[in-house]
Simulated scan of single mutants.
Amino acid sequence: AIERFDVPLPIRVESTWPVIAGLFWVGIHRLLVMKAEAGTPRHLFPDDFDYPDSMVNLPWYAETWALWVALLVIVFGGYMIRKSRNSY
């Protein structure tokens, strides 16, 4: 109904797909972290001094920096692709 009266919508799939892909990556990264945490032994240390699970060394792809780097690459790369395709 809004487009019928020539009012453009600011949020469209064509303009937000990099953000949607980035959010999809956040979900995939969370699954990778859960899989990596499930593969680590829970009792690496004696029972009288138990460390929290956050101190267990995780693979590089399950680290927080990998989440942010990949998210920025996906979002900025997606907008660069969109910009280059719209410039023709």
Rank of each mutant, 00 (worst) to 15 (best):
A1L: 09
E3N: 11
E3L: 12
R4G: 14
R4M: 06
R4H: 07
F5L: 10
D6K: 13
D6G: 07
V7P: 02
L9V: 03
P10G: 01
P10K: 00
R12I: 05
V13I: 09
E14S: 13
S15W: 01
T16D: 02
W17I: 00
W17Y: 14
V19Y: 05
A21P: 00
A21F: 04
L23G: 11
F24L: 13
F24C: 08
F24K: 00
W25H: 07
W25C: 02
W25V: 01
W25N: 03
R30P: 01
R30N: 13
L31H: 10
L32N: 05
V33Y: 10
V33P: 14
V33H: 03
K35C: 02
E37Q: 14
P41Q: 12
P41Y: 08
R42Y: 15
H43F: 15
L44G: 15
L44C: 08
F45C: 06
F45G: 03
F45Y: 11
P46I: 06
P46R: 15
D47E: 15
P52A: 05
P52T: 03
D53V: 11
M55S: 10
V56P: 04
L58Q: 08
L58E: 02
L58N: 01
W60R: 10
W60L: 08
Y61K: 05
E63H: 09
E63C: 07
E63N: 10
T64S: 11
W65P: 02
A66K: 03
L67R: 11
L67T: 06
V69E: 01
V69H: 03
A70P: 00
L71P: 00
L72V: 12
V73H: 04
I74R: 09
F76S: 08
G78R: 08
Y79W: 10
M80V: 09
I81Q: 09
R82E: 05
R82C: 04
R82Q: 12
R85G: 05
N86E: 15
N86D: 09
S87T: 13
